[in-house]
Write a protein that binds this DNA or RNA. Sequence first.
RNA 1: UGACUUGUAGCUGAAUGGUGAGAGCAGUUGCCUUAUACGCAAAAGGUUAUUGGUUCAAAUCCAACCAGGUCAACCA
Length: 1131
Amino acid sequence: MAVKYKEYQQLNLPVIGEEILDKWNKNNAFEKSVDLREGYPPFVFFEGPPSANGMPGIHHVISRTLKDLVCRYKTMQGYQVKRKGGWDTHGLPIELGVEKELGITKEDIGKKISVEDYNKKCREVVMRFKDKWDDITQKMGYWVDLNDPYITFENNYIETLWWCLSELYKKGYLYESVSIQPYSPAAGTGLSSHELNQPGTYKDVKDTSAVAMFKISEKSKVKIKNFVGEAFLMAWTTTPWTLPSNLGLTLGGNIDYALVKTINPYTRHVINVILAKALITKYFKKEEEDKVTITRYQEKYGYDSAVTSTNIDDPKQPWYVISEFKGSELEGLQYEQLLPSEANTLEKIQEITPGAQPFRVILGDFVTTEDGTGIVHTAPAFGADDFKVGQKNNLGILTLVDKQGKFVEGVGEFSGRYVKNYKDEPDYVDVNVDIAVKLKLENRAFKVEKYEHNYPHCWRTDKPIIYYPLDAWFIKTTAVKDRMVELNKTINWKPAATGTGRFGNWLENMVDWNLSRSRFWGTPLPIWKTEDGEEEKCIGSIEELNTEIRKAAEVLGGETNKHYLHGGILDLHKPYVDDITLVSANGKPMKRVPDLIDVWFDSGAMPYAQWHFPFKNKEQFAKSFPADFIAEGIDQTRGWFYTLHALGVLLFDSVAYKTVVSNGFVLDKNGNKMSKRLGNVVDPFETISTFGPDATRWYLITNASPWDNLKFDVDGIKEVQRKFFGTLYNTYQFFALYANVDGFAFKEATIPLKERPEIDQWILSSLNTLVKNVQVSLDDYEPTQAGRAIEDFVDAHLSNWYVRLCRRRFWKGEYEQDKICAYQTLYECLETLCKLMAPIAPFFADWLFTNLNSVTIRYDNESIHHTDFPKADNAVIDTDLEKRMQLAQDASSLILSLRKKVNIKVRQPLQKVFIPATDSYMSARIKQVEDIIKAETNIKEVDVLGAENDFIQKKAKANFKTLGKKLGAKMKWAAEAIAKFDNATIDNVLEGDYLLNPEYKSNAEEPIFINAEDLEVSSDEIPGYEVANKGSLTVALDVTISEELKKEGNAREFVNKIQNVRKESNFELTDRIIVTVLENEILQTSLNQYKDYICAEILADSLDFLPVLAHGFEIEVNDAILIVSILKKGE
RNA sequence: UGACUUGUAGCUGAAUGGUGAGAGCAGUUGCCUUAUACGCAAAAGGUUAUUGGUUCAAAUCCAACCAGGUCAACCA
């Protein structure tokens, strides 16, 4: 017995996913798909390494679908696409996870637990969810090589990183510097700008802000004229904890300042304050400007005594301006220290920074009058600008907060207190409030209030960061900024705006890359320094290090490196690297600088490190750099995309990737971000097991362009499942049903296209048009367009037109030419569709392909993913035919709408429909498709009314597109003129050039000639008929039902009712029946006349009328009631 | 605060500057089916966020503004 096409009870996408996955695993389908392309041109893809430290989410599924479909597509196109997987294994999230698990903090590392054990733990934990990741990778159908992945903690990987660093060092791109860095006391580490740029780091928080009053010293007071009493410089801060470290006040040289006499709102002292003139209104009310009152108070009570509430008449704050000056006039003014303590005496400051001259007014160009007071409190240790301006003006530097984020000893009552609640202490008292209170009591606060502002937070601990002076190593990315900008222009960004906008702007504003991290689990910076810092060495390979280890042991002798002399270094991590002492050229011992490097360097260097370049695989690397294609979420723009690009340019003066697709976020169905807190996270495992991988992938890709945010809604997946996969599945099911009956196995010679019926030619033409469109879209990295085009074809063309119209061809008649044509055509469509959809829906496509191919054996490939992607055959594409068929679809649709309007069901045959043709071309087209229209709408005749027929009223409309360009401002006039054309004029225009403005000479105009292409001709109004139109197509339906038509309608209605009865009675399709009907005046003649037709349709051996019927039941046929009895033959 | 981006029917998406803004989903009504799928048809739902401008013609281009999103920022 011949092999049959498998038939199924129902479509089960999750099961298909599992079965096909099994098959792939058994056959090594992925490896084969790569091996089969050996010797073909490579298409280079880089896999951005995920961290297996967290669970995969649905957003990983979308970017991986995107990566996978491109790689599959390119493979099918004949490229070899190697896909080396990778794991990101270093970094803060892992360390923090371990800290939490062990219940320790950063300070405990090296004390409660050795660095060795700690790192061992990190190494264990880092692959915690590897199984889950491998699982989702398999289940979603992401083909990537997981057998030989690159792992960033492996020695080989780190060795390449060291090589990269030493190359940068040689080029002078690696340097050390003290600078003010974002620092997270909670995590105990500095943060790179990438980390600070993680989503959600800047949060709106309410902090205690204070306007502090810095008292001008007695010596400097004399420089300011015309006042008595004490004078203060007012400066605002949102971080009062930096005030003890204040060393200067910065003013804008060109900003206007004012000396204002007023009353301290807390102490009611009469005071003189200086602030920017432009900001006076922010602190004082215009209506309270009152010189007299203040003068009176001052005369009565003296300037330095408090005005108590009893001697003040009202709570107003009177004020007046004494004098004005430019900021530059105040430069050098000295003031008294605001919060003196033993830790910040002048002596201490000068001990730290010899020669420092603090507590002065200096000038800076970053000062604005947008907020604050126009006077900036300057603590050089805690702000980048402060540091810069402090250095320039020799203010010194004072760091009264330690790395845990608490005040050092010697800051009076604040010593030892955390400046922010880093430890989640339940009874934490905000030290900033206490500082503010102290200032109030000491007549040093002018205004204290809660202030809501945007402040950066540590992306991992969620605690506020501070700016802190740190020694750090930098990569001088600014040195190649222009080159990076230039090369970025050659990268194909999808969407383009991300490349020019987000990424372009970032490059324009780039700063040097801060590489240093003071942590434990990561790639060590391979730089050794002498204690005096005079000499340093950057190591670029394990071999070099081992040589240096031996050299140092020889030169320095003693215990030096004694554990590393035999086997060399075995693990490049801490603490081993820190054990090693090297020797400088001058014979001095060198210790490694303690820093680790930014993990983004790890992933950014993956093009080189994944191949252990340059120590191995030089050829492999040469063939696989730069990448043709990468894809990740848009959040990687400043992450991976940036570090890849930076290193590509720095090391090889090259882009690292030619095309990059950045996909958007996956939001929940209401457009909210998914978060564990909101509980709206979608579990990808559940989604895939419920709907299958194909429907999930298809939905993710076709619902929105990958770079738009996706509102994830399972109803959308259901719709995809039902509409697209369900329809295609049923088309196959239909094919299999009849192909099995007829034994079609594509063994006959392929019937030439021209010998097939027109409808076959049409669907094949549409199919090839589809192939063309899909290829264009995929080549352009527009998978959404491709998927939607495929959907549209399956739904509108294949299933609901071709199969629908051709059904009879499959089940009527003998197995001969026409039937074989139908099978071959439908088969070809299905097979091609498999290939087209294979990149997006790899399981279903392979399943369908296997079902088809196991019977026909047209391919010896065991998987669709080993076949070639189809190429469009232009010879098969017949656009005129496609248009014609569209005409038939439109006409049928119009006729059906008319039937609906007059309430005549399709089963009731009608005699005639008129379709006016505006020209002979159109009339020829309609005639070619009239059989289709007749069959689809149950109408006996289609009468095409030619152009010569005057009984239709033609109507012309201007073609704005063609005419608008020609006519410009005359367009409106022309459109009106054309709308008034009668039949004869329209015919004239259709025949050739027609002068629209014969009076042009007298109007001094250019002549306007129009022709057929400038008109859109339609017709309306056919007297006596029901008319409908769409565009230039009009149909007029003759709705009179003659006696003859009525009878036929009755017969068909009867057939339909009996078929329903058969179905309800669960008769087999092939059961013969015997029908008896109680005699009936109204219907009997109709049924008798069409008896043969009826019997054939309902598989009845006999149809008889009896005067009496014992066991009959009622059916309703066109408003009449019939009593019938149906017996299965032989019962 | 700035940059980028989005705003179309209850929802999700379309629409090379060209004139009744196209579809699907959901709800209503009817119809078809020798494909256990689906579809077809009708009515309804839109000031294309708002306001201006350019143009013969704007959902589309420009400006402003509102709202959402993403990102950036030393901003005291």
